[in-house]
Amino acid sequence: MPFGDVVRVGGSGLRTHPLRVLLSALGIAIGIAAMVSIVGITSSGKAGLNAILDKLGTNMLAVAPAKGALGSDVTLPAEAETMIGRIESVESVTAIGAVKGVNVYRNDRIPAAQSNGITVVASRLNLPDVVGARVASGSWLTEATARYRTVVLGSTTARWLGLSGTNIGGQIWLGGRWFTLVGILEPIALAEELDVVAFIGWEQAATEFAFDRLSSTIYVRAQEPAIGSVHALLDRTANPKSPQDVRVSRPSDALAAKAAADKALTGLLVGLGAVALLVGGVGVANTMVISVLERRSEIGLRRSLGATRSQIWLQFLTESLLLSLLGGGAGVLLGGLASAAYAVSQDWAIVMPSWAVLGGLGVTLLIGACAGMYPAVRAARLSPTEALTGA
């Protein structure tokens, strides 16, 4: 038969049982939608991560004191920041210092124990430029404002205190004194630990709270080609006497590790999608077997009118392929829409690999062929007499 006739005859069986076809196709659609959406979301997330790294750079290093041999706290030398800045390939350096024993509250009526673990730190004025921080509301500390009781909050700190951009210019209770809120930062991708702190000026911290002017963390931007050599020098440069007491990290490595973990999780989720797809294939096979049993008289009539075994076999195989293709097409569409919606909600670029779409449809056709093979062969083996008499 011509190809058009094969498709028309195969589709006639689907039109006669729309509800059964819908339920069977739904199983295929769920499996394909799960697989396509997982691939799409993962690809969009990877693109979003790469965009962050391209924007913020991968050349930032963080230097902090490590735990002593017996678990005791150690500190960085006072000259560590200056010495690091003298390394030839270092582009910029900044630092924060923990202001110990000082907590921050929304007002002076909050019980002292309810500090939420928020750390108050003294900060250099160039911190945002080095770590890639952006101000969500208000402004960052300046040479003028840092000399007074002013504070900038990390994004998480502001949320915990119940503060937003409308509170800029208001007063908050910090270390038993009123400080003016001048800014709130956006989340900092390369230094998430800064999202849960409150920043005050370096000299103001020394004046108000006897801050010892020692850096708790030093952030370094180095030339990209020399990042490895700078990394190797930082511990000895920061603390020549005890380099083992210095911990050097590359924050972008944490984002890369997150991407690797997402990739591993994606493999697991794709496996679950494959199980759902297999269940859908069983549903298609069940539908086709029932279709053969219900249409024995139709098969017998066609055989009596001259249809060959191969034509009967091709009819039911085509019907199975069309049923699977219907579910696969719906699954690709639903999966694509789900991944696009999620990417938009996360402010990611919408990325859908072509191989995911083509692969989804290809797997669908393979499932349809496997599911329809036995029912098609069974239908083809029915003799006209047996089919017409229902024996």
Rank of each mutant, 00 (worst) to 15 (best):
I200C: 08
E203P: 02
A205I: 05
A206Y: 02
A206M: 14
T207H: 13
T207C: 04
E208F: 13
D212A: 10
D212V: 01
R213Q: 13
T217A: 11
T217D: 05
Y219W: 14
V220W: 01
A222D: 03
A222S: 06
E224D: 13
G228E: 09
A232W: 07
L233A: 13
D235A: 15
T237H: 05
A238D: 07
N239E: 04
N239Q: 09
P240G: 08
P240K: 03
P243C: 09
D245I: 07
V246F: 03
V246E: 02
R247M: 13
R250H: 04
P251H: 08
S252V: 11
S252A: 15
S252H: 14
S252G: 02
D253R: 11
A256D: 12
K258Q: 12
A259L: 13
A259E: 11
A260R: 12
A261T: 12
A264T: 11
V270L: 15
V270M: 11
L272M: 12
L272R: 02
L272W: 02
A276I: 04
L277Q: 01
L278Y: 03
V279R: 03
V279G: 01
G280K: 00
V282T: 08
G283N: 01
V284Y: 00
N286T: 15
R295I: 07
E298C: 02
I299P: 00
L301F: 06
R302Q: 09
A307S: 13
T308W: 09
R309W: 02
Q311I: 06
Q311S: 15
W313A: 12
W313M: 14
W313D: 10
L314K: 14
F316Q: 08
E319A: 13
E319L: 12
L322Q: 11
L322T: 06
L323M: 10
S324R: 07
S324W: 05
L325W: 07
A330E: 00
G331V: 00
V332F: 04
L333V: 15
G335D: 04
G335N: 08
G335W: 01
G336I: 12
L337M: 08
L337G: 11
A338K: 04
A340N: 01
A341N: 05
